[in-house]
Amino acid sequence: MFASIQEFLSALGQYNFLQSALLASIMVGIMSGIIGSFIILRGMSLMGDAISHSVLPGVAVAYMLGINLMLGATAFGVLAALLIGYVSTHSKLKNDTSIGIVFSAFFALGFILISMAGSSTNLHHILFGNVLAVSDQDLLTTVIVLAIVILFVVIAYKELLITSFDETFAKSYGLNTTVMQYALMIILTLVTVSALQTVGLILIVAMLVTPAATAFLWTNRLSIMIVFASIFGVVASTIGLYLSYTFDWASGPAIVLVAAAIFMVSFIIAPKQGFFQKLGGKHG
């Protein structure tokens, strides 16, 4: 094991592509921890999954037209969010049902468009991630998205907090909660597209939810939760990258499994969980 870590580190010094992969993984770990914290506190985990799946046709269309992937993906992500809202407000169906309908349809459409547009290896990489093929262009996009995410959360921290905690109160003092919701969804689609390369579309929801949920078990303060979620995201991404490189695993599943392992350990030892107290039969 030590030998393989040493080998990984020396490869890191040697290969440009590995450095890019590490940088991208770290940045995606940070941004998904930050946005994921709000996603889980707002009960939007399924929505996060839906939006990440719904960007697929956007990726395909952008690829066909030769425009920036971000543009196509964001357009379809927002379109999906609007459609989900429309279906649940204009029918008696519950929100999770309309999410299920819309995102599966978008994903199916994207799947077909991608097969029409390019090679199948491409599709596999989009679905499961191929962090070792991060280009300088991708890296630059990721830096920009990370900057937007941090700026957004620093500037609108108080608005994000109150709309997540007590939306009615936010409305009562005149905050436009709908704008906040859509701003968050737009940022979420940007994060999704950045994470396409590292974890792949199917597992993005894990990066949003798992590190944030792990952080939730450790603290009672939102600001600390966000920092912890980012740290857990970075640790999972880095160890996952190492596993991916060493054992030739797909990067997405490797990263997600590490995140899940950190969650499991936290689930048992985090003081807020009181797992041992429960086992001991004391008051929980």
Binding site: K158, E159, D166, T168, A170, L175, N220
Partner: peptide, 29 residues
Amino acid sequence: EQRANLDMSFPINVFDVVLTGTYGRLGLF
């Protein structure tokens, strides 16, 4: 509002809840 409508597990303490009362007056951002 009625207390039943709130998420009690939200990571926020008493002081920070009371502080949100200043948000309206502070204005955006």
